[in-house]
Each structure stands twice: as C-alpha cells, then as structure tokens.
Amino acid sequence: MLYGEQLRAARALLRWTLKDLSAKASAIEPVSSDALKKWEATDGPIRGINTKIDAVVKVLEAAGVELLNSDAPGARLRKAG
C-alpha cells in the first residue's frame, strides 16, 4: 500500500519533479503527472490502478527509497553500500 504522504516524501528525497517520476514510471506502466499530483494530494492510502501504483513503487525503490509501512508510514533513503 502506498500513501500520499509517502509519495510526496519519496519524490522530495530524490529531488524529482512530477515529470521526472512520471517518465521513469511510464517506462513500466503509463503514469501521468496529473495522476501523480492527485495521488500526492491524498492523505492516506492511494486509490488507483494497482499496476500504475506498483510501477511508481518499483521506480522509487530502484532509486534507493525505502517505503516504511508501520503505524506511521514514511519514506527514507537506503544507506549507501
């Protein structure tokens, strides 16, 4: 499950624009900047097409983001090495 808060935090950690994330995720499954903007405005779990959400998660994780899903969902960068 991906939360709007996590998506905002992850993109900020990577210093990516909505366009950057859209382009990278769209290599797996088309995801528009407008959809990402809507998802980021969500407080709580993102609702959408699972394949699109999965593509975004894969791209973020490949870039080094860890999505934390405990009682306080968040995001952090993996340690180098």
Rank of each mutant, 00 (worst) to 15 (best):
L2T: 05
L2A: 03
L2M: 05
Y3S: 05
Y3H: 13
Y3L: 00
G4R: 08
E5T: 08
Q6R: 05
L7N: 02
L7V: 06
L7R: 01
L7W: 06
R8E: 10
R8Y: 08
A9P: 14
A9M: 13
A10L: 02
R11T: 06
R11M: 05
R11Q: 07
A12E: 14
A12Q: 10
L13I: 03
R15V: 08
W16D: 04
W16G: 03
T17R: 08
L18F: 07
K19N: 13
S22L: 02
S22A: 10
S22H: 04
A23Y: 09
A23P: 06
A23R: 13
A23W: 07
A25S: 09
A25D: 04
S26K: 03
S26R: 01
A27Q: 10
A27K: 11
I28S: 04
E29D: 06
E29Q: 06
E29K: 01
E29W: 00
P30G: 00
V31G: 03
V31W: 04
S32W: 00
S32Y: 00
S33R: 09
A35L: 09
A35W: 00
A35S: 13
L36V: 05
L36F: 01
K37M: 15
K37E: 15
K37G: 14
K38N: 13
K38E: 12
W39K: 04
E40C: 09
A41N: 15
A41V: 03
A41P: 12
T42R: 11
T42Y: 07
T42C: 10
D43H: 13
D43Y: 11
G44R: 07
P45D: 05
P45F: 05
P45E: 14
P45I: 07
I46T: 08
R47Y: 10
G48D: 06
I49T: 12
N50Y: 15
T51A: 14
T51K: 13
I53L: 08
I53P: 13
I53C: 06
A55D: 09
V56M: 02
V57S: 03
K58W: 07
K58D: 12
L60E: 01
L60C: 03
E61Q: 13
E61F: 07
E61S: 11
E61C: 11
E61K: 12
A62K: 07
A63M: 04
G64K: 11
G64W: 09
V65Y: 09
E66G: 05
L67A: 05
S70G: 15
S70F: 08
S70Y: 12
S70I: 00
D71G: 13
D71R: 14
D71N: 14
D71V: 10
A72T: 15
P73R: 06
P73V: 06
G74I: 03
G74H: 12
G74Y: 15
G74L: 05
A75C: 11
A75I: 11
R76W: 14
R76T: 11
L77I: 15
L77M: 15
L77W: 14
L77T: 11
L77G: 13
R78C: 11
R78N: 09
K79L: 09
K79C: 04
K79E: 10
K79F: 08
A80K: 08
A80M: 03
G81C: 00
G81E: 00
G81T: 00
